[in-house]
Structure formats: C-alpha cells, structure tokens
Design a binder for these strands. Structure first.
Lengths: 133, 133
DNA sequence: AAACAAAATTGAAACCATTACAAATTAATG
DNA sequence: CATTAATTTGTAATGGTTTCAATTTTGTTT
C-alpha cells in the first residue's frame, strides 16, 4: 500500500491514507468502478469515510492526470442521429463539443470478432484552439 | 417537416407530430443537444409538451437505431487510471464493460492538429458473446 | 512542545437530470 | 360509433453528484 506513495507524489499528490487506498483500489480493480463501488469497498477499512472524500480524491486524481473518467450512458446525456462514424472533441476549458472527422471503421480492433457491435464512439478531451490563446 | 415522415417510418417509428419535430431538431442541430435543449426548443411549437415525452421519444429513436446517445462527463461516471489507450465495449444486455485492446494512437485523426489532446476514449456498444447464446 | 496555519476529511442538505407511473388524450381498428 | 391500442402528459420519486461550512488532521513556526 505504502509502496504507492512515491507514485502519488510523482503526480504532485500528497499520499494520505485515504488517497493511497483509493489509488490501490483503482490499481487492483480494472473493471471501471463507480465512485460508489470505491466507497463501499474502502469504507470497510475506513469506517468514517465520506463519499465526498471519494469524489474529492477522484477529482484530484483527474486534475493531476493520474486518472480519467469514462462514461457509458448516464445523465446529462447528449443525443445524436446515427450517421457516419465520427469522433467528438470536448474542450475542458470552454466545454464546447467539436465534431472531428474520422473513419472509426478503419480501426480494425482485434478481439471484437465475437461481439455484435451496434455503435462506436471516439472521444477526445483537451483544450481547443480558441482556448489556447 | 412532414418530409421526414418516410424516414421515421423506415425505422418502424410512427411519425407523430412530436416525433417529427424532435427528429427535425436532431437533424438541424448537430451540436449534440441535451434532452432539455430539445425540450426548450420544441416547447415553443407544442406548449403542452412534456419532458417525459422528449425522453420517451429519444429512447424510442435509440431502440430503433435511429439515434444514439453520447456522454461526456456526467453521473454514474466510472473511473480508470490513465494507462495505455484502450477501448471499452459495453454489452447492452448484461451491462458488463469489457476492455478491448486497441492502439488508439494509430487513429491518425485529421483536423486535430491544433487541439491539445489530454485523453482519448473509444467506446463500442453491442452484445457480448455470452449474451448471444 | 505549544500555537498557529494550511490541508484534508466529513456530513448534511441541495441540486438536477432522469425515471416511474398512472391519468388523460389522441390515433387506429372493427 | 364504439372499442382498443398507442401516444402524451404531469407529478412525484430516484439517485448520483455537488455545495459548503464545520471538524479533524497534518505541517510549520516560535
């Protein structure tokens, strides 16, 4: 557990006990946990743990580029007609969403042969040209 | 507006007035509107419009594979450490999320040269092998 | 060590997009 | 026209996330 301290420090994150446990959980559970799943698990070690702390820590990890959030199909959802496959670029500064021309089909992904694919989406996050000025 | 009737019918969707307006909105607004943005706009034509109807209609469009939902960074969010770029496959039957090996870097996307990219995600939706049995 | 300041954590309340559900309206069928 | 099915509506509930002030812990200075 403490063996992760230097990793957090290298991301400019002070390795508190809570943060170490949350990092450890992310490290050892690769099935994309929700904040609640993380909370439920770590609460067994830290009974006083607050859900807010979990959110605070995850947001900190994201700000320091140690973690990322992935979304599947939830609230504040946006809708689009199904047309040509294309990518989206979300500017983290102005929140604007840009369309990016890309042929998602070209991505010959191995290991999907046994899956029935109905939809494919490619999402980029970063800073748009306007906000770089 | 009515010119869209045959399109809806071809997707096995009865073209009610509300559904035509919602389809028209999606067709003419390519900036990935939220359900609320759609509601606010169409409410001006149908003052009695209910938000539930907007959700019902969008879910119908999705079920009929006429539309899709795209997510950016909202609730029921899942978290992941930033590691090698990889894709996710979400089974719409059992809700399980699979990791898919893919080199996202290989996708040489044109038109991103002026953007600062911090993160890239590729999401597939469909039916996993287990649920096909 | 004690005192102070900064950072981290906590807990309750609020927020808000989405969903559930039953009633009401409209369209389709015989 | 009557009956049934489909669509739409409005209210209430749900639940993940955020806000924010208070508390606790950690770090620093004298």
């Amino acid at each position: 557990m403490e063996r992760y301290g230097h990793i957090l420090r290298s991301y400019d994150i002070k390795p508190s006990y809570t943060r170490l446990l949350i990092y450890q959980y992310l490290k050892e559970h690769k099935n994309h946990p929700t904040a609640d799943e993380i909370y439920q698990s770590i609460q067994q070690n830290i009974p006083t743990l607050s859900k807010t702390t979990v959110y605070n820590t995850l947001h900190l990890f994201i700000k320091k580029h140690l973690a990322t959030m992935i979304m599947m199909d939830e609230t504040e959802t946006r809708y689009d007609l199904i047309t040509k496959p294309h990518a989206h670029f979300k500017c983290m500064s102005c929140s604007k969403i840009y369309d990016v021309a890309v042929d998602v089909e070209q991505f010959s992904v191995e290991g999907l042969s046994d899956y029935v694919v109905n939809d494919a989406q490619l999402l980029y996050r970063g800073i748009c040209p306007k906000c770089q000025a």
